[in-house]
Design a binder for these strands. Structure first.
Lengths: 222, 222
DNA sequence: TTGACAAAAATCGTATACGATATTATCATT
DNA sequence: AATGATAATATCGTATACGATTTTTGTCAA
């Protein structure tokens, strides 16, 4: 038989994955700030492992844009300029409007009910650190029926990259209220099958967040 | 001084990069076919290194979608279904039209001249294996002035993922002729600053390739 | 012959060890 | 005192080695 590998993935505890997930979460929550050096020995000791799985985890985060490597000098938590935030939101708009457009024809009553419940959960959530995650779950729920797994993965990465900066706004209740109002408008358009309207609302929703974040970062840079 | 790392990247020969680049090129050229197992020992011996840089190179290719990992069972060259090809082209259209739209206002005479020369070079290139690369260079040249580096990187990855399948068509001269005609039409619209027309032509150009490739893969699957 | 089980081989995943490179500290010189 | 060269230190990058998991092979009974 010709060389082949039966493509049967199996559950296995991957140390590399654990490290990557932990570091990712810490970067998102702002515990590990931009430009902070990520020393391999330090991380290895912390997890009680050698440097090799640490390196592989860092490589994974590099691919996600959360970490920057400098040859022979190590890795740091990646920093985003306002220009990069603008770029990421432009990409999000391009990809998420595509996802939503393709998802709406396949949205079920169950999807809509679940999305509604999620918005209520956001309203009642006290822990600000959780808002980013719930926010993403709402968006992901609307895009899921499009059945575009690669697109979903990339949109998730884009979301992750701006999420750690968004936390700054989410603490301000006024933005969260606006955001939730926009979420409900999008959901309503989806429910009525008004694809173009829903897509336009989504685009405006993302653009509004982008403008706010870019303005904030430009101000801080000065 | 607080912990920080002067962000001064420096040129250094990275074995991992060399391995990743080599394997990537071989996958693109069809030398390493879909589902072929990539044994770490084998690759390590071939490059005269240990398994560690090999693993890190494979991780990088995994992030690019060219390789799939199975825990404790190794990595294989990723295979694309027709559905995945459709998805990738949908993403390409979303992202590349964005790039072109933002690039056109900044296109210089030099850009246009260079693009023209590249099309001529494609016409005269005999080696079919080179067409994919030149093709990408043409597209990249038109998007470059948008000054969106992350977008460019991701579009490059998307292009890479379908390029190895596209080689199948490029050997057929009739498709290459059609493709080149479309390229020149796009370039002409760019030259005249007709953004909407250029974007529409680009979308049709990509969709035509997508349709052809999807049809081919669906036929082969049966 | 077929199927189930066990032993053997192959392959992966990671720890340890060490050389290479970069950064910091020390000291002589102007 | 400031500057530049040199030594010491820290950190990274990779080879070697080994245990863990999986796949294959071999054996035996039904």
């Amino acid at each position: 038989m010709p060389p082949s590998l039966a493509p049967l993935p199996k559950a296995a505890p991957q140390i590399t994955e654990v490290i990557a997930n932990t570091l990712r979460a810490e970067i998102l929550q702002g515990l590990l700030k931009s430009n902070l050096p990520l020393r391999q020995d330090e991380i290895a000791e912390r997890f009680g492992v050698s440097k090799i799985p640490v390196r592989e985890a860092l490589y994974q985060l590099k691919a996600e844009g959360l970490v920057t490597f400098f040859p022979n000098r190590g890795a740091v938590v990646a920093a985003l300029s306002s220009a990069e935030v603008d770029e990421i939101y432009a990409m999000r708009i391009a990809l998420e409007t595509l996802a939503l457009r393709r998802a709406i024809p396949h949205l079920t009553i169950a999807n809509l009910t679940q999305a509604e419940a999620l918005l209520d959960a956001i309203d009642q959530e006290k822990a600000v650190a959780q808002w980013g995650e719930l926010n993403w779950e709402f968006h992901a729920l609307l895009y899921q029926p499009a059945n575009l797994p690669r697109l979903m993965e990339w949109v998730r990465i884009l979301h992750i990259n701006v999420a750690r900066y968004l936390v700054i706004f989410l603490v301000g209740l006024e933005y969260q209220a606006t955001s939730q109002r926009e979420h409900r408008a999008i959901l309503e358009a989806c429910r009525q099958g008004q694809t173009d309207i829903a897509v336009t609302l989504l685009e405006e929703h993302l653009q509004a967040a982008a403008n706010k974040l870019v303005a904030f970062l430009q101000q801080r840079a000065s």
